[in-house]
Design a protein around this nucleic acid. Structure first.
Lengths: 176, 176
DNA sequence: TCAGATAACCTAACGTCGTTAAGTAACGTG
DNA sequence: CACGTTACTTAACGACGTTAGGTTATCTGA
């Protein structure tokens, strides 16, 4: 708070006339980042095939994390009290997960997935979870001083590989 | 520090005779948790097939995270200064990642993977990343107050599904 | 056996942090 | 021009990690 205040040329207490407390401020910044990520993923809307969109989203999700590690950590990894329901102002229309889920539904209607996969939400969570894991690993890299023998692959390389693997695992026909 | 000291019936300053500072103490606790996770994963050693071991490790990794969310967050998600090289005392023999990597190597020698996969390290990171993502999602669940429409599947269900998907994506023959 | 070192622990205090209380200056509205 | 609201200030509180300095117990060696 005091450091933010210094940087913007005010006193720390001035912030409290605009935000209830530190968490409220951080949540606002966090929502901003969520919108940025959502927008980045929504760029894939132009691709005609829903599976291609999902693939591209996966790769770009990791790219976002690697390019904005502070924001990514901030969004997903920093513990903060759950904001009150009134604070949840993020619009599903600009949410990344909602977009992913819509694409899974679309691909499912086209019969792209193996017959075993009928739960779109579960599929979406598998897609998200797989790239989320890689993203988190890359964004918390320094911690792996604990695993000095971990020879981490390039984010781009592992992202492509992960997306390929998961797609081959869920798709009826493996085009790629 | 003060709260820990209270709980163990000492003054806060007493701790500084046993640990250099807060980070040193936390790193020690963290190493403890890493050993616990490593041991949990190493239990799979009894399974004869390396692929079965990898599958079971994936499911148990998520189980560990869900059963010990505090520890898991602590190990992977809490930002802390990188410990000095002298502090890295974790033995590869009791490390989970090293065990995973060894199993990937073993399965690769048996020709279990599709010919495209020749990089054992990359494969290990795909296995780890996929379940790590789900684990992180489940362990940071409260934060998804931001995604109120996210209908999170049961950890066990999504863990099994993830492991199946990734295995189908990398294995030559899909036995399961 | 006893001096001296070492270890384990204490109290007091410092600086930093998030936050609150109380006050002041500027501004828009009747 | 009075008046409430807004934007901001200084001063201070309590909690935190940490340090300095002192006290007591325990162990070691001549």
């Amino acid at each position: 708070m005091r450091r933010i205040a210094d940087q913007i040329g005010y006193t720390a207490t001035a912030i409290y006339h605009h935000f209830a407390d530190k968490d409220a401020l951080l949540n606002e910044l966090c929502l901003n980042d969520f919108r940025a990520l959502g927008e980045a993923l929504r760029q894939m809307e132009q691709l005609p095939d829903p599976i291609d969109r999902i693939r591209a989203m996966g790769v770009n999700y990791i790219k976002f994390a690697v390019n904005h590690p502070e924001q990514f950590r901030f969004m997903f990894l920093v513990e903060r009290p759950i904001p009150g329901p009134d604070v949840i102002t993020i619009d599903p229309a600009e949410d990344g997960y909602a977009f992913l889920l819509a694409n899974v539904h679309e691909a499912m209607e086209r019969g792209a997935f193996l017959p075993a996969f009928t739960d779109a939400e579960l599929l979406a969570q598998i897609f998200w979870g797989s790239v989320h894991g890689l993203a988190v690993i890359h964004v918390t890299k320094p911690r792996d001083g604990i695993h000095p023998w971990l020879d981490l692959r390039e984010p781009g390389e592992s992202a492509e590989a992960m997306v390929d693997v998961v797609c081959r695992g869920v798709l009826k026909s493996t085009s790629a």
